[in-house]
Design a protein around this nucleic acid. Sequence first.
DNA 1: AACTATTTGTACGTATGTATC
DNA 2: TGATACATACGTACAAATAGT
Lengths: 259, 259
Amino acid sequence: MVCYHAALIYWEPGAFMSETFYARVARDLAEGIASGRFPVGSRLPRELDLCTQYEASRHTVRAAIQELQGLGLVSRKKRAGTRVENSSSTRGYRQSLASVEDLVQFGAAHRRVVQNIGDVVVDRGLARQLGCAAGRAFLRISSLRLNGDADAPPIGWTDVYIDPAYAQLRDVIGEYPEVLINDLIEARYGRRIAEIRQDVQALALSAKLARALNAKAGAPALRIIRRYLDQAGEAFEISVTIHPADRFTFSMCLRRERG
Amino acid sequence: MVCYHAALIYWEPGAFMSETFYARVARDLAEGIASGRFPVGSRLPRELDLCTQYEASRHTVRAAIQELQGLGLVSRKKRAGTRVENSSSTRGYRQSLASVEDLVQFGAAHRRVVQNIGDVVVDRGLARQLGCAAGRAFLRISSLRLNGDADAPPIGWTDVYIDPAYAQLRDVIGEYPEVLINDLIEARYGRRIAEIRQDVQALALSAKLARALNAKAGAPALRIIRRYLDQAGEAFEISVTIHPADRFTFSMCLRRERG
DNA sequence: AACTATTTGTACGTATGTATC
DNA sequence: TGATACATACGTACAAATAGT
């Protein structure tokens, strides 16, 4: 069977049909919108008119319009028809932290072995790294990240910088090494993360870090700097994590938001 | 007319029908997933079974499953059924691609100079890197990323792998080097991105790449692999970008959603 | 490697409900 | 109030992809 669809040249189902018909209709309409033939604010033809134009069933036309809706190009109302809202799709993507994989990236699944806790004053080099003012005082908690295996080399090294006001945490962290520090802060001080800024860079391992991580000096590694901001935009916790290249991949998943 | 739907108590259309039937089915299934009756990784019953269970038409069942798909709870494949991917549609952190900084990360702000376009068949090593089956054929587009400065060294090297079905793009890409390839695909083929998976790793520059990038072999670099998935969960575009450590920082901002 | 059976995908038709101009 | 346009629901048939033989 070969179908002829006037508005969209030939279309035939079967092995030669590279694109489905409703997708074709959707694309044609989307192009019409992008090109200004259907300007923002105007209305598309009614479903039944599109059916005759494209010689398609109502079902097919609706599937096409649903696509446009998903792209955020049009909105629909019962009696009012289909309104063009946007000439191109500009939807955001959402990252979810819910799945276990994602949490691994944020440190929950790793065992943390505290190596060192002490006060530091930020010098110029560190200030540039952390993105804060030089001279600021922090409590620094250094720890190794391990996975389950006892004799596997560590996955990474973490320095967590927190406001000295939270110095009480010093003791708690020793007791509950598996809890995330920002969860502790949220639980004890009610300061909630509003925003996380992350920077990921490559660098060569310093001799000192290489020794601690049981790796070769100069080997490539990943450095992840996370700044945890509260509602006011103040960074109340900053973490710097170093992972030798072969032991860690930073991965994430962004899903496009739905209309 | 009053319809009786065994699995979901009474349902009647008309003024008293607060919820449509397909929404009801969708909610029931979503609850089943959240409660663990359909664990992540398991499969939902086939459409026809759901039809008999809910005493609904296939049309209605499909509309319900489409809802779940939109929420990211399930994925579907032909023959293989409907797989549970996620137990809840989480209000997590949200990354917006609206700001200029964010767009930089996705390549829009860089100038792209195409070096090479050709067909490749994925070997074992590349398959592991891309996360696809060995033996698959792709069209590979290699390009240098430059910023504004004429004599500054390149920011990175990108290999974009796309389905050979989109081979027509070969010509278009030369004409419009500043347009993102996935925008081209979306505009011309109507295949839209539902999800982006990103892996970021550190590695040492190979001699060949180092030459192309005007950097030292063995120097640390960032490798970003992005897999662009459509609604069905199929990767229709994969890009691999390499940035010398000193020329690029991968940064992002996550905001906690209201709720 | 070719075939078959199964499951989802696309497309058709029809009828009625619902919101709203 | 009535007519209009989208929304939901039933049905059927065949195509496409793929897991399993």
